[in-house]
Design a protein around this nucleic acid. Structure first.
Lengths: 159, 159
DNA sequence: TGACACCCAGTGTCATAACACCTAATATTC
DNA sequence: GAATATTAGGTGTTATGACACTGGGTGTCA
């Protein structure tokens, strides 16, 4: 199976943001760009049978190492809001990507860890993921990237 | 009905982006910030019984004026990808916010227009929407806003 | 005018997201 | 140590999203 769907999606003509306040333009551009990057990323993931949320879980769990993470900790680290972590993990467990074990000392807690298979899968995606990131940002210098990151973090810090 | 849900969502500790390439950090921050803004916005819209997509349709149709727009034109102007425009418009039509009429000269085309009720609804939201935009971006100067917008548009232009 | 390609809108079907609620285990208070 | 609160995880239900496909409507070319 080569590439998937044809993917037209010219969506969101940049020009349409004229005539509004700067804050409004900024808001629209952040949301639109975020959606574009997310879509690109999910497009890249499709051949692996993953969605963005599942990839995110794999990435976070790989970062967490052998200790794994409990459901709520995992949920709080997600890139996007994810109220229904349980069933997302259910699906990933069924797919053999993660394993869950209830803790002995606090039996309310369930620790989720990457399986070997999950680990191998995300490792195999790394190269594609890096390529995808570079593609979108290739026109920006390191200074510009720093500026962009700083500005976005300032926005995130507002309440 | 006052405010709705408690909304904890501390999600996405900014610090977690260390140790990766600048492009990666930029990608994560754009996606995360976009999701935050979208969530905020939908939070604000909830009391009006609208979701982000529906608000977006109202906004676009208001801009289009009395001529309205056909389904595909509308879809292409959406801020986020929306493959299932038909049923979104179905719901909005059922709610009395939009009206659809098939064109006489090309009977394939269906024009969607705002109803008076839809128009009044989006007008009544304007003040809240503007407040929400300002809140998130208040810490940025006009120059910084311009810079942010320019950088994001450069990202959007990459294929 | 009949065959063809193409365009627009809509539908069937399945997977996933959202929201409110529930249950079990542990902590806290008296 | 029994009652209560709190915290973690899970479930039921409904709404929404994705994707492939259908089917009518137009144009165009023999």
């Amino acid at each position: 199976m080569a590439q998937t769907s044809p993917r037209p999606r010219p969506r969101g003509r940049t020009a349409r943001t004229a005539g509004n306040s700067l804050q409004h333009q900024a808001q629209l551009n952040v949301i639109r760009t975020g959606a574009m990057l997310q879509d690109d990323f999910e497009q890249m993931l499709a051949p692996y049978g993953l969605g963005g949320a599942q990839f995110n879980v794999l990435r976070i769990l790989r970062g967490a190492g052998a200790d794994g993470l409990c459901r709520n900790e995992l949920r709080d680290r997600m890139l996007t809001r994810m109220p229904d972590m349980t069933r997302l993990l259910d699906r990933m467990e069924r797919a053999g990507l993660v394993a869950r074990t209830r803790k002995d000392d606090d039996r309310r807690m369930v620790t989720t860890r990457l399986t070997r298979e999950g680990r191998q899968l995300i490792d195999s995606i790394d190269a594609d993921a890096a390529r995808e990131q570079k593609r979108r940002f290739r026109s920006l210098s390191d200074t510009q990237l720093h500026t962009l990151i700083d500005l976005l973090q300032a926005v995130q810090r507002q309440s």
